[in-house]
Amino acid sequence: MTEPAIEVNDLTVAYHERPVLWDMDVRVRAGALTAIVGPNGAGKTTLIKAILGLVSPAAGRIRILGRKYREARREVAYVPQRGTVDWDFPTSVLDVVLMGTYGGLGWMRRPGRKERERAEAALEQVGMEAFAQRQISQLSGGQQQRVFLARALVQDASVYLMDEPFQGVDARTERAIVEVLRHLRERGKTVVAVHHALQTVPEYFDDVVILNVRKIAAGPVAEAFTEQHLRTAYGGRVPFLQGVAPSPPATPGVQESPDPAADRRGTFSGGA
């Protein structure tokens, strides 16, 4: 079995004594596209932030590529929710994408020509090269999302964590993002994305983690993305159930290899 890209053990996160995530075990398969789904307030964003070390857990252990976040930082790229920043900030598209290179630069060092070229290449990947000098307030929602994606691409990481990359984007952007995700998978990268639209989970993702404060199910979409699990997570009111819960066939590219060391409940593992 290859090492998981992300390994979360016994993770509990609480805000003001109120648990947001309870005793969660998750393994994210390297080289796969994994969706995190669950109802509002289920702790999806918190899980991403805990992995990134942005919130400190009450308990548990998180390893990225076998290392602590601090040591694996350069291998991780992050796409926050689009609404978390002020898009009227006086800066250009290229400038925002360049921020993806800051982590690799030391204190006081400015991005140079090399970084600029990388940023331009990333913009090209998301189809935004024509907008490099555009002020960010002049972008549509979908274009903003693609700029954030380009910023993560510039980080040139192995693991990409995305918080609702498809939230409120136009069809063209959705296609572009899917393309980028597939391209990342081809290059052996790992992508974990918080996702809302349940109907596109089987089409876009290989694996899924269903959670609602605790983990409900996790594994290859064909196995874990079942009606029963979704009903458990969403409390019976599942927004979309079509195309869900097929009988588990062998998913191409996913070779299920039960790990005797792993707890049967919850965790999943597999080698690609």
């Binding site: 309870w22 009450a58 548990g60 605790r214 792993a262 707890d263 409940r265």
Partner: peptide, 30 residues
């Protein structure tokens, strides 16, 4: 509460003997 949920999650599992011990708590629940 965390302890009990942890024990519940691993009850009957293959790794229960390892997970559900006081000394393991020190390691995994920090």
């Amino acid at each position: 509460e965390m302890l009990m949920i942890h024990v519940l999650n691993h009850e009957g599992g293959v790794r229960a003997r390892v997970e559900n011990r006081e000394d393991h708590l020190q390691e995994h629940l920090r």
